[in-house]
Design a protein around this nucleic acid. Structure first.
Lengths: 237, 237
DNA sequence: CGAGCGATTGAAAAGACTCAACCACCGTGG
DNA sequence: CCACGGTGGTTGAGTCTTTTCAATCGCTCG
């Protein structure tokens, strides 16, 4: 974590308005502002890791982060992607148990750390905030359960199509609709999202390229035919 | 849902003490008691289903319930098992969205329904309760994420070993340690837990039998060698 | 320039699924 | 009481998917 950047303020933080912290009462907000510590993370830098002791939660101010869990054989499985406004590491804060997932920057990112006491106090004092927070947890859980079903029942090809669409939805594209996804992952990372071997991932990507659904340029991926991918992914919803 | 049974009281409910409702203040408890509606469900009966509109949460008083989500091809994936004290359907209550999972009795079960208003009021008034509730959600989420990694990275054999150990942990055995698991699932259900085809499940079960790790008698499954299953499942934790 | 990592491709092997047949048990109705 | 039909369980065979291992390629960085 490096230190040369402008420390953001919660009160004027655009990312906050995208997050579960949007409705925070101003008295709580002050507590956040004075107790938080923000850090800048370069691409590849770790924000927290499995088994680390939790001391609060992280709130993303800018950048992109992958949240993953390491399997028995050491292979990382990407559980979810975070963007500005996302709260990370809340589970361990609540349970007091060490982190069960790791978070690593995918890009230059600024991530703030809010001490447990501050956060818990806000949860206790601001009912509306607590409510929003629970809704966020619900939504994370719902997403995880959908992921379970897809991993159990869909073939790699469908999961890959879905993963690409998810990346588009979360991080968007650089310019127009068919311009490159505004995030770059290694093939290994993408394999870790889809839950497959790197070689299989590469082959399946090639298939999609051959079908003109996507195009690749270096590490950049462009989605040429969103509808087509939805069809491939069997995603009616 | 049939009606011939003794309606349980929250205040004297043994299951409650096993649940997130254990610390509930007595004033809230009264609200639960007067507003709840309990129902008895026979084996195979549905408690709620995907896309049903939520009107509160369910709390298990007795019995066994499977919670599952239906995949695109209509194949049910069992997400989790519930026992007395388990709260079901809380996600949709929070979000107001229709249920994203279904719950069905595996055995004669008594399940109470607590109206949304009552439950939400308790969450708002009783900070300790809200805290416990969030911890429960955390733990569900953690479990779901572990499941994701295992589905993505472990072969059927390992997942089956784990599933059997989970069933033992949740529902226990009928008598001694190597007596039959105190729950009966069809092969199809077990396949839906592990995330595989019925035929594969049957074959893998046979392998475990051949290795004397388990034994089967009709639908009953006995775990003969817990240590062995832990080894097969690659479960150091 | 050379080392090394990430990406790609090929070929073989393993794992899992599908299809099809058969068996075993159970409850029903004759 | 028994024949019948149906459901759930099991097994076999073949096929498809996915993984693994090996080799090659290309690029970047020191």
């Amino acid at each position: 974590m490096s230190d040369t950047f402008q420390e953001p303020l919660c009160s004027t933080c655009a990312a906050r308005l995208q997050s579960v912290l949007d409705s925070l009462e101003s008295d709580q907000l002050g507590g956040f502002e004075t107790s938080k510590k923000c850090g800048s993370y370069k691409k590849g830098e770790s924000i927290f890791e499995e088994n680390d002791p939790p001391e609060g939660v992280f709130c993303m101010h800018s950048g992109k982060v992958k949240v993953f869990k390491t399997g028995d054989e050491g292979k990382p499985q990407i559980i979810r992607f975070a963007k500005p406004g996302t709260i990370l590491g809340y589970r361990s804060m609540l349970s007091g148990e060490p982190y069960t997932v790791s978070a690593t920057a995918l890009d230059e990112s600024i991530v703030c750390h809010i001490p447990k006491d501050t956060f818990v106090a806000a949860l206790e004092k601001d009912t509306q905030f607590a409510r929003r927070f629970m809704e966020m947890m619900s939504s994370d859980l719902d997403q995880a359960e959908t992921q379970i079903v897809h991993l159990a029942q869909k073939p790699v090809r469908e999961r890959l199509a879905e993963a690409l669409l998810v990346l588009k939805k979360i991080y968007g594209t650089e310019n127009g609709d068919t311009s490159p996804l505004d995030v770059t992952l290694t093939r290994e990372e993408l394999a870790g999202v889809v839950g497959t071997a790197v070689e299989t991932l590469v082959r399946t990507l090639s298939d999609l390229k051959r079908e003109r659904l996507i195009a690749t340029d270096k590490k950049k991926i462009r989605i040429l035919d969103t509808e087509g991918l939805i069809r491939v992914g069997n995603l009616q919803d």
